[in-house]
Design a binder for these strands. Structure first.
Lengths: 154, 154
DNA sequence: TATTGTTATACTCTATAACTATA
DNA sequence: TATAGTTATAGAGTATAACAATA
């Protein structure tokens, strides 16, 4: 029997009925889009999320931010080191609890977030064209409901 | 200023409006569900996809299967080695093209896929309850349309 | 020349245990 | 005792270059 060569693409019909597989497929393509738009800023998806979160929640601790993003606090240390070395984030010591740091954006970090947000808006607009604005909103709502329900143990 | 302790969860409202972030969030929770159901079978999501794909497309080459799943063929080698050592997959040599292997499930592999499929159906049913059957179907359709559009360069 | 499977390598992400300093 | 940040480490996943056998 002749083996099928790489020009042929295998049939994925059954897998496409799996929510997990379809989520992964969609996320994989999204990841590429993210790179296409955000690579010039040299920011990865996880860094984007961290910076946005510190921007919205100044003063939160490393544990709080990393927990919210589902990142182990151990792995969050080197991530923050990098953002700090780039001059975007500050670890402020606190007199109240000297174990933890209060995270803040630097002035440069705030400017960078503005730039990120503008580029990210273009990305969202571009992928919004894929399904149309209406369907993209539905997708967004269903994704968040799905994750919320999972977090609430449903 | 007192740093916010870990009991407080940071505000993710803005990030939840990002398709990419919401996809990642949903996939993260899905990944946990997959483990809850499939861990007893000792099969990871990528292995699940490979076995399902070989089952549906017997005789395809390593390149074809790995390309379809977006896995580098270099990384696919050790993955297949593991599945072969477990006695689930066969690399059959071909007289027509002696460079490549035709991938097939063993009898044991076919039984295992049946077991996987049954467990996976339970998983899909469980997560279907989260959004309801109707909304889950809509989510599935939108996810696949989204990935299809991306693949077609839209 | 080009492709298939392979090895080697490196970088990111993720997960866990254990340490220190504080509470 | 418990928590925040940290270090070290190990396992996955992912990406690239280069090689031998074959087309």
């Amino acid at each position: 029997m002749k083996p099928i060569v790489s020009e042929a693409v295998a049939n994925t019909r059954e897998l496409n009925n799996s929510v997990g597989f379809s989520l992964r497929r969609a996320q994989l393509s999204m990841y590429k889009d993210f790179g296409r738009f955000m690579d010039p800023l040299e920011v990865r998806p996880s860094q984007f999320a961290v910076l946005m979160l510190i921007n919205t929640n100044p003063g939160f601790s490393q544990s709080a931010i990393s927990l919210t993003l589902g990142i182990q606090r151990a792995n969050f240390v080197s991530m923050l080191d990098e953002l700090q070395e780039r001059g975007l984030v500050e670890r402020r010591t606190s007199a109240n609890d000297r174990r933890s740091f209060a995270l803040h954006l630097t002035k440069q970090g705030e400017d960078f977030v503005k730039q990120m947000r503008a580029t990210h808006a273009k990305l969202e607009k571009a992928i919004g064209r894929r399904l149309g604005v209406r369907n993209t909103k539905i997708l967004l709502r269903l994704l968040n409901e799905f994750a919320d329900a999972a977090e609430n143990g449903i």
